[in-house]
Protein backbone atom coordinates (compact mmCIF):
# COMPACT_ATOMS: atom_id res chain seq x y z
CA UNK A 1 0.00 0.00 0.00
CA UNK A 2 3.04 2.25 -0.15
CA UNK A 3 2.23 5.54 -1.86
CA UNK A 4 4.25 7.08 -4.68
CA UNK A 5 4.04 10.39 -6.48
CA UNK A 6 5.27 9.57 -9.95
CA UNK A 7 5.78 13.09 -11.31
CA UNK A 8 9.18 14.51 -12.32
CA UNK A 9 8.08 17.92 -11.02
CA UNK A 10 8.59 16.44 -7.56
CA UNK A 11 11.95 15.80 -5.91
CA UNK A 12 11.41 12.04 -5.66
CA UNK A 13 8.63 9.53 -6.36
CA UNK A 14 8.93 8.21 -2.79
CA UNK A 15 6.47 9.59 -0.28
CA UNK A 16 7.22 9.76 3.44
CA UNK A 17 4.74 7.35 5.04
CA UNK A 18 4.56 9.48 8.18
CA UNK A 19 3.36 12.60 6.40
CA UNK A 20 -0.31 13.50 6.14
CA UNK A 21 -1.81 13.84 2.66
CA UNK A 22 -1.87 17.61 3.22
CA UNK A 23 1.86 17.65 4.03
CA UNK A 24 2.63 15.50 0.98
CA UNK A 25 0.71 17.92 -1.19
CA UNK A 26 2.43 20.95 0.40
CA UNK A 27 5.87 19.47 -0.19
CA UNK A 28 5.04 18.56 -3.78
CA UNK A 29 3.62 22.04 -4.37
CA UNK A 30 6.82 23.64 -3.07
CA UNK A 31 8.90 21.64 -5.53
CA UNK A 32 6.93 22.60 -8.64
CA UNK A 33 6.16 26.23 -7.69
CA UNK A 34 9.43 27.67 -9.12
CA UNK A 35 8.72 25.97 -12.47
CA UNK A 36 5.20 27.46 -12.51
CA UNK A 37 6.59 30.91 -11.69
CA UNK A 38 8.98 30.55 -14.64
CA UNK A 39 6.01 29.80 -16.90
CA UNK A 40 4.30 33.01 -15.67
CA UNK A 41 7.50 35.02 -16.28
CA UNK A 42 7.73 33.48 -19.75
CA UNK A 43 4.10 34.44 -20.45
CA UNK A 44 4.76 38.03 -19.37
CA UNK A 45 7.50 38.28 -22.00
CA UNK A 46 5.19 37.17 -24.86
CA UNK A 47 4.53 40.39 -26.82
CA UNK A 48 0.84 41.22 -26.38
CA UNK A 49 0.17 38.86 -23.46
CA UNK A 50 0.16 41.68 -20.90
CA UNK A 51 -2.42 43.52 -22.98
CA UNK A 52 -4.98 40.74 -22.44
CA UNK A 53 -7.38 41.13 -19.52
CA UNK A 54 -6.15 39.91 -16.13
CA UNK A 55 -8.93 37.31 -16.15
CA UNK A 56 -7.82 35.91 -19.52
CA UNK A 57 -4.13 35.91 -18.55
CA UNK A 58 -4.98 33.82 -15.48
CA UNK A 59 -7.33 31.54 -17.47
CA UNK A 60 -4.69 30.84 -20.14
CA UNK A 61 -2.03 30.12 -17.52
CA UNK A 62 -4.33 27.91 -15.45
CA UNK A 63 -5.28 25.85 -18.48
CA UNK A 64 -1.91 25.80 -20.23
CA UNK A 65 0.80 25.63 -17.55
CA UNK A 66 0.93 21.83 -17.57
CA UNK A 67 1.33 21.78 -21.38
CA UNK A 68 4.06 24.44 -21.28
CA UNK A 69 5.90 22.41 -18.65
CA UNK A 70 5.63 19.26 -20.79
CA UNK A 71 7.30 21.11 -23.68
CA UNK A 72 9.96 22.78 -21.50
CA UNK A 73 10.82 19.61 -19.62
CA UNK A 74 10.64 17.15 -22.53
CA UNK A 75 14.36 16.52 -22.06
CA UNK A 76 13.71 14.97 -18.62
CA UNK A 77 12.39 11.94 -20.53
CA UNK A 78 15.43 10.12 -21.89
CA UNK A 79 14.21 7.87 -24.68
CA UNK A 80 17.49 6.00 -25.19
CA UNK A 81 18.17 5.33 -21.53
CA UNK A 82 14.44 4.89 -20.76
CA UNK A 83 14.74 7.05 -17.66
CA UNK A 84 12.93 10.05 -16.18
CA UNK A 85 14.93 12.72 -14.33
CA UNK A 86 13.14 14.23 -11.33
CA UNK A 87 13.72 17.82 -10.11
CA UNK A 88 16.31 16.56 -7.61
CA UNK A 89 18.39 15.46 -10.61
CA UNK A 90 17.97 11.79 -9.79
CA UNK A 91 17.04 9.44 -12.63
CA UNK A 92 14.49 6.64 -12.35
CA UNK A 93 14.02 3.86 -14.89
CA UNK A 94 10.69 3.38 -16.64
CA UNK A 95 10.45 -0.08 -15.08
CA UNK A 96 10.94 1.33 -11.57
CA UNK A 97 8.30 4.02 -12.17
CA UNK A 98 5.91 1.39 -13.57
CA UNK A 99 6.32 -0.67 -10.43
CA UNK A 100 5.35 2.46 -8.49
CA UNK A 101 2.10 2.71 -10.40
CA UNK A 102 2.98 4.86 -13.45
CA UNK A 103 0.78 3.89 -16.37
CA UNK A 104 -0.34 5.13 -19.74
CA UNK A 105 0.58 8.77 -19.09
CA UNK A 106 4.27 7.83 -18.72
CA UNK A 107 4.25 6.04 -22.11
CA UNK A 108 2.49 8.98 -23.72
CA UNK A 109 4.98 11.46 -22.24
CA UNK A 110 7.88 9.45 -23.70
CA UNK A 111 6.16 9.26 -27.07
CA UNK A 112 5.53 13.02 -27.08
CA UNK A 113 9.07 13.89 -26.01
CA UNK A 114 10.53 11.64 -28.69
CA UNK A 115 8.46 13.23 -31.46
CA UNK A 116 9.20 16.76 -30.27
CA UNK A 117 12.95 16.11 -30.02
CA UNK A 118 12.92 14.60 -33.53
CA UNK A 119 11.82 17.97 -34.95
CA UNK A 120 15.17 19.45 -33.84
CA UNK A 121 13.82 22.89 -33.06
CA UNK A 122 16.11 25.76 -32.16
CA UNK A 123 15.72 27.50 -28.81
CA UNK A 124 13.91 30.40 -30.51
CA UNK A 125 11.52 28.06 -32.34
CA UNK A 126 10.83 26.12 -29.14
CA UNK A 127 10.11 29.35 -27.30
CA UNK A 128 7.68 30.56 -29.97
CA UNK A 129 5.99 27.16 -30.09
CA UNK A 130 5.59 27.31 -26.30
CA UNK A 131 3.92 30.72 -26.67
CA UNK A 132 1.50 29.21 -29.24
CA UNK A 133 0.72 26.40 -26.78
CA UNK A 134 -0.10 28.90 -24.04
CA UNK A 135 -2.11 31.42 -26.05
CA UNK A 136 -5.03 29.23 -27.18
CA UNK A 137 -8.37 30.93 -27.65
CA UNK A 138 -10.36 27.74 -27.08
CA UNK A 139 -9.41 27.36 -23.41
CA UNK A 140 -12.35 27.34 -21.04
CA UNK A 141 -13.37 30.55 -19.31
CA UNK A 142 -11.85 33.01 -21.81
CA UNK A 143 -13.75 36.33 -21.72
CA UNK A 144 -12.37 38.07 -24.75
CA UNK A 145 -11.95 35.26 -27.29
CA UNK A 146 -11.26 37.69 -30.15
CA UNK A 147 -8.23 39.25 -28.44
CA UNK A 148 -6.73 35.87 -27.54
CA UNK A 149 -7.44 34.59 -31.05
CA UNK A 150 -5.75 37.61 -32.63
CA UNK A 151 -2.64 37.12 -30.47
CA UNK A 152 -2.65 33.39 -31.19
CA UNK A 153 -2.78 34.02 -34.95
CA UNK A 154 0.11 36.50 -34.74
CA UNK A 155 2.20 33.96 -32.84
CA UNK A 156 1.35 31.14 -35.29
CA UNK A 157 2.33 33.37 -38.24
CA UNK A 158 5.64 34.22 -36.55
CA UNK A 159 6.29 30.53 -35.85
CA UNK A 160 5.54 29.60 -39.45
CA UNK A 161 7.87 32.28 -40.73
CA UNK A 162 10.66 31.13 -38.41
CA UNK A 163 10.22 27.46 -39.42
CA UNK A 164 10.20 28.41 -43.10
CA UNK A 165 13.47 30.26 -42.65
CA UNK A 166 15.25 27.47 -40.76
CA UNK A 167 14.01 24.12 -42.09
CA UNK A 168 14.38 22.46 -45.48
CA UNK A 169 11.06 20.61 -45.26
CA UNK A 170 9.24 23.50 -43.65
CA UNK A 171 5.64 22.49 -44.45
CA UNK A 172 6.07 19.04 -42.89
CA UNK A 173 7.84 20.45 -39.83
CA UNK A 174 5.22 23.16 -39.28
CA UNK A 175 2.36 20.67 -39.73
CA UNK A 176 3.96 18.19 -37.33
CA UNK A 177 4.43 20.96 -34.81
CA UNK A 178 0.79 22.08 -34.98
CA UNK A 179 -0.26 18.44 -34.56
CA UNK A 180 1.54 18.48 -31.22
CA UNK A 181 -1.17 20.81 -29.88
CA UNK A 182 -3.92 18.12 -29.71
CA UNK A 183 -1.32 15.68 -28.33
CA UNK A 184 -0.64 18.13 -25.51
CA UNK A 185 -4.37 18.50 -24.79
CA UNK A 186 -4.64 14.75 -24.54
CA UNK A 187 -1.67 14.59 -22.12
CA UNK A 188 -3.25 17.42 -20.10
CA UNK A 189 -6.51 15.44 -19.79
CA UNK A 190 -4.69 12.25 -18.79
CA UNK A 191 -2.71 14.21 -16.19
CA UNK A 192 -5.90 15.69 -14.72
CA UNK A 193 -7.35 12.19 -14.42
CA UNK A 194 -4.22 10.97 -12.62
CA UNK A 195 -4.39 13.93 -10.24
CA UNK A 196 -7.97 13.04 -9.45
CA UNK A 197 -6.99 9.42 -8.83
CA UNK A 198 -4.19 10.57 -6.53
CA UNK A 199 -6.43 12.90 -4.57
CA UNK A 200 -9.16 10.29 -4.23
CA UNK A 201 -6.56 7.76 -3.11
Amino acid sequence: NRMHLVCPMGMSPYVDQHMSSHQIWEEFSMSFTPAVREVVEFAKRIPGFRDLSQHDQVSLLKAGTFEVLVVRFASLFDIKERTVTFLSGKKYSVEALRSMGAGELLNSMFEFSEKLTALQLSEEEMSLFTAVVLVSADRSGIENVNSVEALQETLIRALRSLITKNHANEVATFTKLLLKLPDLRSLNNMHSEELLAFKVH
Partner: peptide, 27 residues
Protein backbone atom coordinates in the same frame (compact mmCIF):
# COMPACT_ATOMS: atom_id res chain seq x y z
CA UNK B 1 -12.85 17.49 -11.59
CA UNK B 2 -13.30 20.47 -13.87
CA UNK B 3 -10.52 22.62 -12.49
CA UNK B 4 -7.27 20.75 -11.87
CA UNK B 5 -5.37 24.05 -11.68
CA UNK B 6 -7.31 25.18 -8.62
CA UNK B 7 -6.92 21.76 -7.02
CA UNK B 8 -3.16 21.98 -7.33
CA UNK B 9 -3.07 25.50 -5.90
CA UNK B 10 -1.85 26.62 -9.32
CA UNK B 11 -4.24 29.53 -9.55
CA UNK B 12 -2.87 31.04 -6.37
CA UNK B 13 0.74 30.74 -7.57
CA UNK B 14 -0.18 32.19 -10.96
CA UNK B 15 -2.10 35.15 -9.50
CA UNK B 16 0.74 35.99 -7.11
CA UNK B 17 3.34 35.74 -9.89
CA UNK B 18 1.24 37.99 -12.14
CA UNK B 19 0.37 40.48 -9.40
CA UNK B 20 3.56 42.58 -9.62
CA UNK B 21 2.87 42.87 -13.31
CA UNK B 22 -0.57 44.37 -12.77
CA UNK B 23 0.65 46.72 -10.06
CA UNK B 24 3.36 47.95 -12.45
CA UNK B 25 0.78 48.53 -15.17
CA UNK B 26 -1.54 50.53 -12.96
CA UNK B 27 1.20 52.66 -11.42
Amino acid sequence: FGDPASNLGLEDIIRKALMGNFEDKHD
